[in-house]
């Protein structure tokens, strides 16, 4: 975890194998929602980790300044953001971009 210099908070979430942790970085104004984010991640973890290989997952960042976070981190990330222009152009106003 020492590789990050601008970490606001690390919430260790135990993997289902009980051997490793995934750091959850909360930053850029998201800090006040830390309990909500932690609960959310734990719900997801219970659902997902039993049926997924997440051995390559290094960290999760929840950011209030999404674009800045992406810029700070190397290319090759897996991201989630709302409404890309591509999908919007299809008129699906309530759709989300799952990149």
């Amino acid at each position: 975890m020492g590789q990050y210099t601008n970490v606001a908070l690390m919430l260790p979430v135990i993997r289902m194998d009980n051997q490793t942790v995934i750091p959850i970085r909360v930053e850029g104004g998201a800090e006040q929602y830390e309990p909500t984010i932690q609960r959310l991640c734990e719900i997801v973890w219970r659902h997902s980790a039993t049926s997924m290989d997440l051995s390559t997952l290094e960290a999760i960042t929840v950011s209030g300044t999404y674009e800045q976070s992406v810029a700070q981190i190397d290319l090759g990330y897996v991201g989630a953001k709302p409404l890309s222009p591509t999908i919007e152009s299809f008129g699906a106003g309530k759709a989300w971009s799952l990149t």
Partner: peptide, 16 residues
């Protein structure tokens, strides 16, 4: 190669 999942706060906050 490792994956880093980045989530926009508003993306999850508004639905919640």
């Amino acid at each position: 190669y490792k994956c880093h999942l980045i989530i926009d706060l508003q993306t999850i906050l508004e639905p919640l």
